[in-house]
């Protein structure tokens, strides 16, 4: 009984470290082969459209409603100590520093990471990855690298757009529901924002983009056992990229805004 228990714990640790090691080797392969010609620029463009452009509505809607809800919450909370006037600046800071990149990252992770894992996973189980190799095309260069580059480029742009829409969501609720003057709302928003707020948002978005691309491709690349394996890879891609986004967000916040 005890031996079995130890065996299970051992297996758990072994699997964890095996996965981490495998992931590190995978990233090293991407970094070493991706920057050597040939470059598949057309693939990068296609992925930029798929990852960036088609995610705009999801990220925009999420940001708009979050900005609006944030304005309501801060107004209600601020009214407890007569600080209703902080709504514009807190909505802007909250959206740009934190909610914009995190929610944008999570939404794109749910959409894109799953799609990448499903697409590459299906290619794996139907031997299309093997076919690529036999046609002298490195699957990492052809499939993985363009997706990761597209994620890294797309996410900061999406987050920038999302931040703007989020602030506009706050403005809309502030003006229509909380009786703010639109000009003073916007002035208050701009006054308290610094360049560092934008920079931190973009740094976070870039790293989240890398996480989404890597976890989507990694889980697809190592999926197995037919349709069930692809399903598992898709779930694992979303869960792992979401957790990594939330965890890395904390450490990035520590690093960028040391108290």
């Amino acid at each position: 009984m005890i031996l079995r228990w130890f065996f299970q714990i051992g297996t758990l640790f072994f699997n964890f470290f095996f996965s981490v090691g495998n992931l590190v080797v995978f990233i090293a392969k991407i970094l070493t082969s991706g920057f050597i010609p040939p470059f598949y620029l057309k693939e990068v463009t296609t992925q930029l459209y798929k990852i960036g452009y088609t995610s705009l509505p999801v990220v925009g809607l999420t940001a708009f409603f979050t900005g609006g809800a944030l304005a309501l919450q801060i107004f209600e909370g601020g009214s407890r100590f007569n600080a209703e006037s902080v709504v514009p600046s807190i909505v802007a800071i909250g959206m740009i520093r934190e909610l914009g990149p995190v929610l944008g990252g999570l939404m794109v992770a749910g959409r894109v990471s799953a799609a990448m894992a499903a697409e590459i996973g299906t290619m794996k189980v139907t031997e299309q990855l093997d076919a690529l190799t036999t046609l002298s095309t490195d699957p990492i260069k052809y499939l993985v690298f363009p997706r990761i580059i597209a994620s890294i480029v797309s996410l900061p742009i999406l987050v920038l757009v999302g931040n703007t829409i989020g602030v506009m969501g706050g403005l809309f609720v502030g003006v229509t529901r909380l009786n703010f003057n639109s000009n003073s709302y916007l002035l208050n928003t701009i006054e308290y924002l610094t360049f560092d707020d934008f920079l931190s948002s973009l740094i976070k978005a870039t790293i989240f983009g890398f996480i989404i691309g890597v976890m989507g491709c990694y889980n697809g690349f190592f999926s197995n056992r037919g349709a069930e394996g692809v399903g598992r890879a898709t779930t694992a891609a979303v869960v792992s990229s979401s957790i990594l986004i939330l965890a890395s967000n904390y450490f990035l916040t520590e690093l960028l805004f040391k108290p």
Partner: peptide, 25 residues
């Protein structure tokens, strides 16, 4: 040249691009 068990054609490409894939790039 190799023919795989399930043909392993690239789903996202039309037939002519599948056949001539080796020369695509």
């Amino acid at each position: 040249g190799i023919v795989f068990q399930g043909a392993a054609l690239f789903d996202s490409l039309p037939i002519w691009e599948n056949i001539s894939f080796k020369f695509k790039y």
